[in-house]
């Protein structure tokens, strides 16, 4: 087991080295990249992906996948946006529990379909990706929630906070990462998710309630997507039925896979995921600085996923060979 852990540690060290090398390379060409200002830009680009990645990490560790997170983000943001527009007198903080609860309900619906009907999560969430997006259009009557409808206190959360003026949304994102770390490492639920993912057949024999754990994982994924939804409204100041959250799942899956979370379940760390998110943030911030057109971004994300998959596989093989255990 120690050996496995060492390999994983190497994986995280590897991403860290990649980040450092990347930043130095860009910095040699564009010294502006190595300033505090640019750190702020990178950190402001990542909070939503960070929160989504934490949720997706738990889902993948449990040997599932959730493709509907972007649509859950959009739907929750729209519910909150509509609330702000229709009831401007409500205390704006109410938006947080509402967004999180809305997301959780959608997530539980995914979880129920997966557990009751024994359906593969990838197809279920491909369906709800479309379904939730459609519902977002319906509840909003296909209209955008405008900047003037979003409370200025909420928008201010993306600009500052009492803690060294670090914007609230960055603090929240790292808080969620910390929370996920605690769940993954120090709770029974965390251990059960890992056990379920590494060997679904043996999980019931170990006394794990597979249905309950799966439901909780999908509910968490929904709740965190809901949180990302209200933070979207804070960050960008509007909620659009078609744009908000579109393509979010791909960014998140890219970050998580780069971070070393195995698609075969059972393997993945919060540290690796955080680093994966930061690497994506560095790339996204560096491209325009270097004058590389934004149209290359998707090809870069796609190739990074494929490369990460190949690395993942070679790490697994080496791990399996050195402890002479069959492939998981």
């Amino acid at each position: 087991m120690n050996l496995v852990r060492n390999i994983l540690f190497r994986r995280e060290a590897g991403i860290l080295v990649m980040i450092v090398l990347f930043c130095i390379a860009v910095g040699l060409y564009k010294p502006q990249f190595l300033t505090g200002q640019s750190l702020r830009i990178i950190l402001l680009l990542t909070p939503l992906i960070m929160i989504g990645a934490m949720a997706q990490m738990l889902v993948l560790v449990g040997r599932h996948v959730d493709l509907s997170i972007g649509s859950m983000l959009g739907f929750s943001a729209m519910v909150v946006g509509l609330m702000y527009r229709e009831f401007p007198d409500l205390w704006w903080v109410i938006g947080f529990p509402i967004a999180i609860a809305t997301g959780a309900v959608l997530g539980i619906f995914n979880g129920l379909l997966v557990t009751i009907f024994k359906l593969p999560s990838i197809i279920v969430t491909l369906g709800t990706l479309s379904l939730y997006r459609g519902l977002t259009f319906i509840i909003s009557d296909a209209r955008q929630i405008n900047r003037s409808d979003i409370p200025s206190e909420l928008k201010l959360m993306s600009r500052t906070s009492p803690v060294f003026d670090i914007p609230w949304i960055i603090l929240i994102a790292f808080g969620i990462a910390l929370m996920t770390y605690v769940i993954a490492r120090h709770t029974q639920l965390g251990r059960q998710i890992y056990a379920l993912g590494s060997n679904p057949e043996a999980a019931p024999l170990r006394g794990i309630d597979v249905t309950k754990v799966t439901l909780v994982v999908f509910a968490l994924s929904g709740a965190l997507s809901g949180l990302a939804g209200i933070l979207y409204a804070s960050r960008w100041g509007f909620v659009n039925p078609s744009n908000t959250g579109a393509g979010f799942e791909f960014q998140v899956i890219a970050a998580v896979v780069i971070g070393g979370v195995s698609i075969n379940g059972g393997v993945g760390t919060v540290m690796g995921t955080v680093l994966g998110v930061l690497l994506l943030g560095c790339v996204a911030a560096a491209l325009p600085l270097l004058g590389i057109p934004g149209s290359t971004q998707n090809a870069i994300y796609g190739s990074v996923i494929l490369i990460a998959l190949l690395i993942d596989r070679s790490v697994r093989q080496r791990g399996a060979a050195s402890i002479s255990r069959g492939g998981a």
Partner: peptide
């Protein structure tokens, strides 16, 4: 999913 993003990119 990876090649889908890659090809489109």
């Amino acid at each position: 999913i990876g090649t889908l993003i890659f090809f489109r990119g």
